[in-house]
C-alpha cells in the first residue's frame, strides 16, 4: 500500500458513486418519512390518545351525572318523606279535632236528650198529678155516693162495695194507663 491518495482501492477512500447514491437513498427515505409515513403515525397516535382521553372524560361525565341524579333522588325522597310526615301530622291533628268535636256533639246531644227526657217526665208527672187530682176527686165523690147510696148497714155489703170499687178502679186504672201509654 502507499499513501492514501495514491491508493485506488483504499479502504478509507469513499467512492464517488456511493457518496451520491447514498445521498439519494437518504433523501428518498427522509422525504417519504417526512411527508407520508410519520404524519400518518402521529395522527393515529393522537387519535388514539384522544379516544382514550375522551373515553375517560365520558366516564367521568357519566359518573358525575349519576351522582347528580342520585342526589336529586335523595333530595326528592327526603322531600317526599317530610311531606308525608307533615301530612300524617296534620291528619292526626285533624282526627283528634274531629274526635273532640264528635265527643262534644255527642255530649251536647246526650245532654239535650236527658234534658228532654227530664222535661217530658216532669210534664207527664204534672199531667198525671193533675189528672190524678181530678180522678181522685171524682172517685172519692163516686165512692162517697155509693157508700152513701148503699146505706151503710151491712159490713159485708160495705166491704163488697169497697172491693167492687177498687176492682173498678183497678180496671179503670189499667185502661187509663193503657190509654195514656197510647
Amino acid at each position: 500500500m502507499g499513501l492514501l491518495a495514491a491508493e485506488e482501492n483504499h479502504i478509507l477512500m469513499p467512492h464517488t458513486s456511493e457518496l451520491v447514491f447514498g445521498l439519494i437513498a437518504f433523501a428518498i427515505i427522509l422525504f417519504a418519512f417526512w411527508t407520508k409515513i410519520l404524519p400518518r403515525v402521529t395522527t393515529t397516535l393522537d387519535e388514539r390518545a384522544d379516544a382514550i382521553e375522551g373515553g375517560i372524560e365520558r366516564a367521568k361525565a357519566a359518573e358525575a351525572e349519576a351522582r347528580e341524579t342520585l342526589q336529586q333522588y335523595q333530595a326528592q325522597l327526603a322531600e317526599i318523606r317530610a311531606e308525608r310526615n307533615a301530612e300524617i301530622e296534620k291528619a292526626k291533628q285533624q282526627g283528634a279535632a274531629i274526635i273532640a268535636e264528635m265527643r262534644e256533639q255527642a255530649q251536647v246531644e246526650a245532654r239535650k236528650i236527658v234534658e228532654n227526657a227530664h222535661a217530658q217526665i216532669e210534664a207527664e208527672r204534672q199531667q198525671a198529678v193533675a189528672r190524678l187530682r181530678v180522678e181522685i176527686g171524682t172517685l172519692s165523690t163516686e165512692l162517697a155516693e155509693r157508700i152513701v147510696g148503699e146505706a151503710l148497714s151491712d159490713d159485708a155489703a160495705q166491704s163488697r162495695v169497697i172491693d167492687r170499687f177498687l176492682d173498678e178502679l183497678e180496671s179503670q186504672d189499667r185502661a187509663g194507663s193503657q190509654a195514656e201509654a197510647r
Binding site: 479502504i11 478509507l12 477512500m13 469513499p14 467512492h15 464517488t16 458513486s17 456511493e18 457518496l19 447514498g22 445521498l23 437518504f26
Partner: peptide, 9 residues
C-alpha cells in the same frame, strides 16, 4: 462498511 455511506450520513 463502505466509507462513503457513513461519511455521507
Amino acid at each position: 462498511a463502505n466509507t462513503a455511506v457513513p461519511i455521507v450520513l
